[in-house]
Design a protein around this nucleic acid. Structure first.
Length: 509
RNA sequence: GACCCCGUAGCUCAGUGGUAGAGCAUCUGACUUUUAAUCAGAGGGCCGCAGGUUCAAUCCCUGCCGGGGUCACCA
């Protein structure tokens, strides 16, 4: 064996492994038949009838060992929780001998009967002990203590964010709340699927590798397809493909999948993130606002038990229907204390300067509106609020408002100061859509590298004809943050993007 | 990309211009109902990396690497 040891704890464990093998112990067996999880034992045990659990088999990772000479207590942790085990040397001399070579982190299976100790803890009295996996590296030890109120006090919790994100497996083993966060995320997505499935809408998959990226304004990741010697883009949105499916005759489709945007990384943004998009034929954005309310209330109730979301500071955000609704320009007017509805681009620029909103002198009308909103309004949108009817320049894929052609039928949902949904009555007039693409092309030519690219086939699809359609996108990661009170998007993504730990020096070319 | 902060034992952290310390973890011994087990002892460190200043650098300076935060960017 030519093993490089990082430190003597690792070396010691390799030595133990060899000694176990020398004694005929298989350190990596193939399976283990459990009768109970730790949770099942704790829930089933009855002091007046301990015989109920006279022969259980549990398995898990050793998380604590207390050796007391000829008797030892240890805790094993499984997916449902943890349970204490008790083993006596005189009853099981061989197993007890093997136990001397086991460590915190090893995975074992044990059979025995359940009893309650003098100090009141439900415990498995070990009659048989098997090693199921030898752990060769030390675990970051988290000790926990219970105070008189029963609160759990953690000592020296594994808290270094870099290590937690890089070695999520360790984070999950030693930090129980992390497991809970990801279970909540998974339940949330399951609840969303159920909500749509119940309505008869079809879950679909559309291309992630796209020859033309579209459906949002963002810089893409570029890759290359060798077989056809052509560039491809990782999708920034799936919108244009889902609309093609509505053209094709499906009347309700949704997709939950990763998008990729080559932009900044911060606590709200990860280069790859999960988006939900749903499109429903014959509906408009008014109907979709009600649906969005219902979706959030249903999902939050399922995941959290109450129709409320959670802020980082632990305060709840009740989801009371109907959510606030305010037109985007009205929200800005309110914030600046004057009517902005009919202001020109140049007047808006002056307004920005007056309110110390930092904008470039050549910024477009849409950009100015966006800056004013982001700076002056968005932070205050804690309670769920629909911001509606954006200027048409900001929304190249949304249908013009039926009463005002300068704005579109669009809403964004803000909760806790975060944008979590974006939706519109979908633009299905191919003539208008072509004009909008032309405007995007003009922006692109003038240096806006996030402007949308013309997708001629998408226009062809619209010419074939798309029924009136409402479409909604939800940032799943951000919604998960609000379901769990997470402070950073990294806390709800198992493996957030990190720079390589030992980065090879990039070669300059 | 800019600025600020951080990087010391497996983990959580102290610390000082004279090359280091605690708790837990680890090792040895004691202990047959413990639970942050306890008691006695021991080992463990390129103080992120590379330069510079200095008689002397973990500490001061510069650069780099990694992380966090703020801003910018970004639906």
């Amino acid at each position: 064996m030519n093993q490089q040891f990082d430190n003597d704890q690792v070396r010691r464990r390799y030595e133990e492994l060899e000694e176990l093998v020398a004694r005929g112990v298989e350190p990596y067996p193939y399976s283990y038949d459990r009768t109970h999880t730790s949770e099942q034992i704790l829930q089933t045990y009855r002091d007046d009838d301990p015989g109920l659990l006279s022969d259980v088999a549990v398995a898990g990772r050793i998380m604590a060992i207390r050796r007391m000479g000829k008797a030892t207590f240890f805790h094993i942790q499984d997916a449902t929780g943890s349970i204490q085990c008790y083993i006596k040397a005189d009853e099981l001399p061989a197993a007890y001998d093997m136990l001397r070579l086991l460590d915190i982190g090893d995975i074992v299976g044990t059979k025995g009967f359940v009893f309650r100790t003098r100090t009141g803890e439900i415990t498995v009295h070990v009659r048989q002990l098997e090693l199921l996996c030898k752990s060769l590296r030390p675990l970051p030890i988290v000790k926990q203590e219970r105070d008189e109120q029963g609160n759990i006090i953690l000592h020296d919790a594994f808290s270094d964010k870099e290590q937690r994100y890089r070695r999520r497996y360790l984070d999950l083993i030693v930090n129980p709340h992390v497991r809970q966060t990801f279970i909540a995320r998974s339940r949330m997505i399951a609840a969303i699927r159920r909500f749509f499935d119940e309505r008869g809408w079809l879950e679909v998959e559309t291309p992630i590798l796209q020859p033309i990226y579209g459906g949002a304004t963002a810089r893409p990741f570029v890759t290359h397809l060798n077989a056809l010697d052509m560039p491809l883009y990782l999708r920034i949105a799936d919108e244009l493909y889902l609309k093609r499916l509505i053209v094709g005759g499906f009347e309700g489709v949704y997709e939950i999948s990763k998008n990729f945007r080559n932009e900044g990384i911060d606590r709200m943004h990860n280069p790859e993130f999960t988006a939900l998009e749903v499109y429903v034929a014959y509906r408009d954005y008014n109907w979709l606002m009600k649906l969005t309310e219902e979706l959030l209330v249903t999902v939050a109730s399922h995941v959290r038990g109450v129709p409320a979301l959670l802020r980082v500071d632990g305060t709840e955000i009740p989801l009371e229907r109907p959510f606030h609704r305010i037109r985007l320009l009205d929200a800005i007017s309110q914030a600046v204390g004057e009517q902005v509805e009919s202001l020109s681009r140049d007047e808006l620029y002056v307004l920005c300067k007056r309110h110390e909103v930092d904008v470039a002198p050549f910024a477009s009308y849409a950009k100015l509106v966006d800056e004013l909103f982001t700076t002056l309004v968005q932070p205050s949108l804690v309670a769920p609020t629909f911001i509606t009817d954006h200027p048409v320049e900001m929304s190249p894929l949304a249908k013009r408002h039926r009463d005002d052609p300068s704005v579109v039928e669009r809403f964004e949902l803000y909760v806790g100061g975060m944008e979590i949904a974006n939706a519109f009555s979908e633009l299905n007039d191919p003539r208008d859509q072509r004009q909008r693409f032309a405007e995007q092309a003009r922006l692109r030519a003038s240096g806006d590298d996030e402007a949308m690219v013309l997708d001629e086939d998408f226009l062809t699809a619209l010419e074939i004809g798309m029924p009136p359609t409402a479409g909604l996108g939800i940032g799943i990661d951000r919604l998960a943050m609000l379901m769990t009170g997470a402070a950073s998007i990294r806390d709800v993504i198992f493996f957030p993007l990190m720079r390589p730990e030992h980065s090879p020096r990039p070669v300059e070319d």
